[in-house]
Simulated scan of single mutants.
Amino acid sequence: MSAQDQPQQPQGSPEKDPDDWVTGDEPMTGPQASYLETLCREAGVEFDPATTKADASRMIDELQERTGRGAAT
């Protein structure tokens, strides 16, 4: 069987920039709020419960780096 005959593996869904999210300006989800609050506490950053989904996503990424929680094992 040649490489052309083999079925292609599904590609992971590409991450969409939070600026492009249709619902990005809505309040963050419960799970986002819970995790973000934990990360904020660990990083010594003030938690804002009025954060939007898009901003929460960005902050989670940033604080994971800062706290080491997002590091691959």
Rank of each mutant, 00 (worst) to 15 (best):
M1I: 09
M1L: 11
M1Q: 04
M1W: 00
M1Y: 01
M1N: 01
M1E: 06
M1H: 03
S2L: 06
S2W: 00
S2H: 07
A3F: 01
A3Y: 04
A3E: 15
A3M: 05
Q4M: 06
D5Q: 11
D5C: 00
P7S: 11
Q9M: 15
P10Q: 15
P10W: 08
P10F: 11
Q11M: 15
G12Y: 08
G12F: 11
G12S: 14
S13R: 13
S13I: 14
P14W: 02
E15T: 09
E15V: 08
D17Q: 05
D17G: 10
P18F: 07
P18V: 04
D19W: 05
D19R: 14
D20K: 10
W21F: 03
W21P: 03
V22T: 13
T23N: 15
T23H: 13
T23K: 14
G24V: 11
E26R: 13
E26N: 07
P27A: 04
P27R: 08
M28S: 11
T29P: 06
T29D: 11
G30C: 00
G30D: 10
P31F: 01
P31N: 10
P31Y: 05
P31M: 02
P31K: 03
Q32A: 01
Q32F: 03
A33Y: 01
A33I: 01
A33R: 09
S34H: 12
S34E: 15
S34G: 07
Y35K: 08
L36A: 08
E37Y: 02
E37D: 12
T38K: 12
T38I: 06
T38Y: 12
L39D: 03
C40K: 01
C40L: 03
R41T: 07
E42S: 09
E42C: 05
E42P: 02
E42G: 00
A43V: 13
G44C: 07
G44V: 07
G44Y: 04
V45I: 13
V45G: 05
E46P: 03
E46V: 14
E46S: 13
E46W: 01
D48F: 01
D48P: 07
P49D: 12
P49W: 02
P49L: 02
A50G: 12
A50M: 11
A50S: 12
A50F: 11
A50P: 01
T51V: 14
T51K: 03
T51I: 14
T51A: 10
T51M: 12
T52G: 12
K53L: 12
K53V: 11
A54T: 12
A54C: 10
A54M: 12
A56T: 07
A56M: 09
S57E: 14
R58A: 05
R58Q: 04
R58W: 06
M59C: 02
M59Q: 13
I60A: 07
D61F: 00
D61M: 06
E62L: 07
E62S: 10
E62C: 04
E62M: 12
E62Y: 06
L63V: 04
Q64D: 15
Q64M: 15
E65M: 09
E65S: 07
R66S: 05
R66E: 12
T67K: 08
T67A: 09
T67E: 05
G68K: 06
G68W: 13
G68V: 09
G68N: 10
R69H: 15
R69P: 00
R69K: 14
G70E: 03
G70V: 00
A71E: 12
A71P: 00
